[in-house]
Write a protein that binds this DNA or RNA. Structure first.
Length: 563
RNA sequence: GCCCUUGUAGCUCAGUGGAUAGAGCACUGGACUCCGGAUCCAGGUGCGCAGGUUCGAUUCCUGCCAAGGGUACCA
């Protein structure tokens, strides 16, 4: 278990032990009170390395002033344990906090800890033995991915990385919506544009796909088949256009995602659900379990029995399945594959799916908590002061590829990861382009390049660069302290991301880490310092380097040697 | 109407019960004969409104106001 946990546990025990006599004196059962002992890290450095609020939490029950209780606790401190936990001193402060100050050797201990854990420093055992599936993007293959897909894509990808880093066995999966009405519409749209290209007058449907890419696909088909298309019966021509367009667009989607640094373990086809009768089977399973009924010629799933606000149609009155029916089958398949946790990353426009999908999970007899649906809020696109309209149907949209080309993969990923998933986010294209040199991601990467440059210079001067645990750290003083404190926090940040399924804690932390390093770098000469202090500082840089690399790897952002 | 999410500095956003609420951008002034100036240091007005729970609320609960999204036998 990481350094920080160990320290916290030790301190907790010390406080608990000191609390017992206070409770006994007043004849209070210690059990529940001891459980309330928690240690936090104060925001302000002057408030110690750790702080405990137990005196305030117990004030009412003990019928005493918090500060008095705190003083009593401090008086009871067992000397040997305190020594062992490296406690330097304790103070009662503010309304009744017990502030704990540790010996500086404790803080320096983070470097050997990093040396010991290496590329797994920051990880925790929480995911060990857990199988997790993360489904994200899952766009219709009816057009290129637009900028709105990017956010969910990056969040889903990094979420998977975080889970993996913490020991989970993760499958990243893309669900291809390649069946149904939207695909028919795609085929028809392409075919009509094709006719138009050949000079025919057409009546383009209002709900058809409008983008220029549809015409391009039509031209490609013409180039490939020419008049040979007419050898097919009219009905088949649309299908042919549909399949051609589908393959092309799906290929483009794969490429675009690759361009954003995203690789899926599995591409799951909606059609396969029909081909393998999985939709039929899933629906009949619901039927056997008596969760279906017929009304108005349609078949309904009684999802309201599991908390959904209304029941949902699974088979339309024309006999065809709804999209929801296929999605039910897909999720049943996921459940059967034995995942401990199934995560869907969806856009805010799909939030209505949460209740109905969880209802399905429960109807199949699984714990509804097995499915976690993460809603990523909408991105509003701007060009300076002007809002960019986003309509896939109208064909007016900025693609994911455009964004990556304009700002670069690293910046694009970092940008999407900076905000919490539930925040409504503004994305200003002009700003993203203009600021590419000052984009916050460069701040982190520059820190990395600087470290690499230091190591290189050291080599040139025949200075041995110690690993984080390979130097005498005693020379480190107040100037190095803030950086050490940031290194200590990393495992907590990872855990926070893991627990909340929110990658953004990591980018916020990354900024803090880079900031602490840059400040240290400006304040402390390293290679030009006296050998003893030089080696200690190099060990600190080694440790910082390790943490930064671990972080960037999770984020899927490159760590350049030079910029 | 109902449901979900969000209202924090001029702007974009962190802060999921603690002490003095933070960062970036923008603005102003400083810092290297030296390891990379894509850096560092300094400068500040703010938790939408009203109640409630709590020793203690920006954080949890309720109501109101505002913004975005959803509310199909579309996907």
């Amino acid at each position: 278990m990481p350094f920080l946990h160990e320290t916290r546990n030790k301190l907790k025990q010390v406080i608990q032990k000191s609390l017992i006599p206070v409770l006994e004196k007043r004849e209070i059962e210690p059990g529940p009170a001891l459980d309330k002992v928690k240690l936090e890290e104060p925001k302000h450095r002057e408030h110690g390395d750790f702080a405990c609020n137990i005196a305030m939490a117990m004030a009412r029950e003990l019928k005493a002033a918090p500060r008095e209780i705190a003083l009593e606790i401090i008086d009871n401190l067992p000397p040997r344990e305190a020594e062992e936990a490296m406690i330097d001193r304790l103070e009662v402060a503010g309304p009744g906090f017990i502030n704990i100050y540790l010996d500086k050797r404790w803080l320096q201990g983070v470097l050997p800890a990093i040396a010991g854990e290496k590329e797994s420093y920051g990880s925790n055992g929480k995911g060990a033995g857990k199988k997790v599936q993360v489904e994200f993007v899952s766009a219709n293959p009816t057009g290129p991915l637009h900028v709105g897909h990017s956010r969910g894509a990056v969040v889903g990808d990094v979420l998977g990385n975080v889970l993996e880093f913490c020991g989970c066995d993760v499958d990243k999966e893309f669900y291809i919506n390649n069946a149904g009405h939207q695909m028919e519409l795609l085929g028809r749209s392409i075919y009509l544009r094709l006719l138009e290209e050949r000079g025919e007058k057409i009546d383009f449907p209002e709900d058809g796909y409008q983008g220029e890419y549809i015409r391009e696909l039509a031209r490609k088909i013409l180039a490939k088949y020419g008049d040979g298309l007419d050898l097919h019966p009219p009905r088949e021509r649309e299908a042919l256009c549909r399949e051609f367009g589908y393959q092309e667009l799906l290929g483009g989607i794969r490429d675009d995602l690759k361009g954003l640094g995203i690789k899926f373990d599995r591409w799951f086809s909606e059609r396969s659900l029909y081909e393998n009768k999985m939709v039929e089977k899933a629906i009949s399973l619901l039927k056997r379990r008596k969760f279906l009924y017929e009304e108005d010629g349609a078949t309904w799933f009684a999802s309201s029995r599991f908390g959904d606000e209304k029941d949902r149609v699974v088979i339309k009155s024309d006999g065809s399945y709804t999209y929801f029916a296929a999605d039910i089958a897909y999720h049943l398949d996921k459940l059967k594959r034995g995942y401990d946790l199934v995560i869907d990353v969806l856009g805010a426009d799909h939030h209505g799916h949460i209740a109905r999908m969880k209802a399905a999970v429960e109807a199949f007899g699984y714990d509804r908590e097995t499915l976690e649906i993460l809603i990523v809020q909408i991105v509003t696109l701007w060009r300076g002061e002007e809002k960019v309209p986003m309509s896939k149907r109208a064909g007016e949209f900025v693609t994911m590829r455009d964004v990556v080309e304009e700002v670069g993969v690293d910046a694009a990923r970092y940008f999407y990861l900076m905000r919490s998933p539930e925040s409504h986010m503004d994305f200003d294209l002009e700003l993203a382009r203009e600021q590419s040199a000052k984009n916050p991601v460069y701040y982190l990467q520059y820190a990395h390049a600087r470290m690499m440059s230091l190591f290189k210079k050291a080599e040139e001067r025949e200075i041995v660069v110690p690993g984080p645990g390979d130097a005498d750290l005693a020379p480190l003083g107040d100037e190095e302290e803030p950086l050490l404190r940031v290194l200590v926090r990393f495992p907590d940040i990872v855990e926070e991301s893991y627990d909340n399924l929110s990658p953004h804690f990591l980018t916020v932390y990354g900024h803090d880490l880079a900031q602490a390093f840059h400040a240290f770098y400006n304040k402390c000469p390293i290679l030009t310092a006296e050998p003893e202090i030089r080696q200690a500082r190099l060990a600190l840089v080694s440790g910082t380097h390790r943490v930064l690399r671990n972080l960037l790897k999770i984020l899927g952002i490159s760590a350049p040697d030079q910029m």
